[in-house]
Amino acid sequence: MDLSLFVIQFLNGLQLGLLLFLVASGLTLVFGILDFVNLAHGALYMLGAFVCAWLTQVLGNFLLAVLLALPVTAVAGLLVERFIARPLYARDHLDHVLATFGLILVIDTLVHLVFGPEGIAVPLPDFLNGQIRLTETLVIPSFRLMIIGAGLAAAAGLYWMVTHTRLGMLIRAGASNRTMVSALGVDIERLFALVFALGAALAGLAGMLIAPITEASIGMGNNIIITAFVVIIVGGIGSMKGAFIAALMIGLIDTLGRSYLDDLFKLVMSQDAAETSAPAISAMLIYIIMAVVLALRPQGLFPPKAR
């Protein structure tokens, strides 16, 4: 096995895992605290990518565009919370799913109207566009390292916020008993809105980070949202720790499965059989893992303690 290729694939898997964590953490935060299922979370991811791509073209500076696009997606989250989520908190999950399904159509079409049907490429500044040569054969694009760094930083920041700040304390309290928090005089509506905006900004950040690699395109959120669902199901819905571990797991398994499953299969079956079955199995791998996890632990690997 080629070691440098493995290192590159490992880093790709890590990068996918961290992006998944950014999307899944918002999803799990909103569900854990607000008990709201937001299918349109992927649309916010797409919105982040488009706003950032457009700002990069206008301003000519990717980092500045990210800084400006973050509050934009947070505000979009606030609007969604105010006009769609809030009237539906008391309803069942089916209504959440249907309304946010409609919202996906609305956001997708609005983006189409404003930014046009084509995807927007995001040019990177020079210092991010280079490559880092680790060894003779091992070359890593520096932007991918930045994604990994940003993902880890966001995870650390979230962990610090949830465990060490007053806001985090309220979030944890709200997740385990929202009536009690409200009775203690906390403005629960504002807390909910804040959590929603935070989730939207996290999804938007993931979109902004991936845009320079894949470009911003309509419907990009609809693929990642399902994988993010798999992540939070495997991790345990509502659990931040579960989302982090499951996201890295799913990211690595998906990436490495696509590159190495055929080699693995060749050990136990014929060349032909391995080459035909490996792509099919690797496409289904994360779902098979999800099924196995659920069959053993229906609440996921790290279910939150009290609900």
């Binding site: 309304a99 409609g102 919202l103 609005l110």
Partner: peptide
């Protein structure tokens, strides 16, 4: 757009 709004 109108379709999605109608669903909501």
């Amino acid at each position: 757009l109108p379709f999605g709004l109608m669903l909501i």
